[in-house]
Structure formats: C-alpha cells, structure tokens
Amino acid sequence: DAPDEFRDPLMDTLMTDPVRLPSGTIMDRSIILRHLLNSPTDPFNRQTLTESMLEPVPELKEQIQAWMR
C-alpha cells in the first residue's frame, strides 16, 4: 500500500498530481477539480477555493513517481 502522505485525503487513492490548497491540505488535482465543479470551496474548511489557488507540489509528485517504479 502507498504511504499515507501519497494518498488523497478525500478519496484515499494514490495521488498522481498533488496540489496544495491554501489551507495547507495536499490533494490530487483531479479530485479537487471534480469537487470544485460542484462547490467552489475547500472541502475541509468550506473557504472559497478556485483552481487558480491550487499550488503544485512537484517534490511530492517526484517522490510518488519514484515509489511507483
């Protein structure tokens, strides 16, 4: 099983494109984008959230890719 820090906190699946929300939570980009289609909010604190506020986490993405090899 993947380490917890590699798993999306909402869907508990392996992240492939991790992004940091303004709240500091790291999620998979595809999952948070799907959530934003229904509700333009951070799913953990209900603060306003837009796609432009998502910050890529390239170092975590590299760690996940290395773990998958």
Rank of each mutant, 00 (worst) to 15 (best):
S30G: 11
I64K: 00
L10H: 04
E5S: 12
D28L: 04
P56C: 09
E55C: 09
E5L: 12
P58H: 10
P18Y: 02
M53T: 03
P9K: 07
L49Y: 02
V19Q: 03
D42H: 03
T25H: 14
T16F: 11
M68H: 15
P22C: 06
E62T: 10
L60H: 03
T25W: 15
R34P: 02
Q65C: 12
I26F: 04
P43H: 02
L49K: 00
P18L: 05
R7M: 11
S39V: 08
I31T: 14
L21C: 07
T16M: 13
L10N: 02
T13K: 07
N38S: 14
L49F: 04
L54N: 00
R46P: 06
E55V: 15
I31K: 03
F6C: 06
T25C: 12
D17V: 03
E62L: 13
M11T: 14
L36Y: 03
D28N: 04
D4W: 15
M53R: 04
D4M: 15
W67Q: 02
A2P: 15
E55W: 07
V19L: 04
V57I: 10
R34K: 14
I31W: 08
P40W: 08
L36D: 01
S23C: 07
F44R: 02
W67C: 05
E51M: 11
V57M: 15
F44V: 05
E51A: 14
E62P: 01
P43G: 02
T16S: 12
M15N: 02
M53Q: 11
D28M: 06
R29P: 03
P58V: 10
A2W: 14
D1N: 14
I32R: 00
E5I: 13
D12N: 15
M53W: 06
L10M: 10
T41S: 09
D4Y: 14
A2F: 15
L21K: 00
P56Q: 08
N38D: 12
N45Q: 06
L37Q: 13
M15K: 01
A2S: 09
L37A: 14
R34M: 14
L37F: 10
M53E: 09
H35Q: 06
I31Q: 06
E5P: 09
T50Q: 10
V19N: 02
V19D: 00
F6Q: 01
Q47P: 03
L33M: 13
R20N: 01
D1W: 14
K61A: 10
I64N: 01
M15E: 01
M68S: 09
L33Y: 07
P3Q: 04
P56G: 09
P56A: 11
L60C: 06
V19W: 06
P22M: 02
V57W: 07
E62H: 11
I26P: 00
T50Y: 13
L54P: 00
M53C: 06
D17P: 02
F6D: 03
P3D: 02
D17F: 07
M68A: 11
S30Y: 11
L37W: 10
E59N: 09
I31E: 06
L54F: 06
R46A: 14
R69H: 13
R46T: 10
R29Q: 05
Q65F: 13
M15L: 04
V19E: 00
S52K: 10
Q63H: 08
L54Y: 02
P9E: 04
R7L: 11
R46C: 15
R69N: 14
S23Q: 03
P40E: 11
L36N: 00
D17I: 05
V57Q: 09
R46F: 15
D12I: 07
D8Q: 01
V19G: 02
M15A: 03
L36F: 06
I32K: 00
E5Q: 12
S23W: 06
L54A: 01
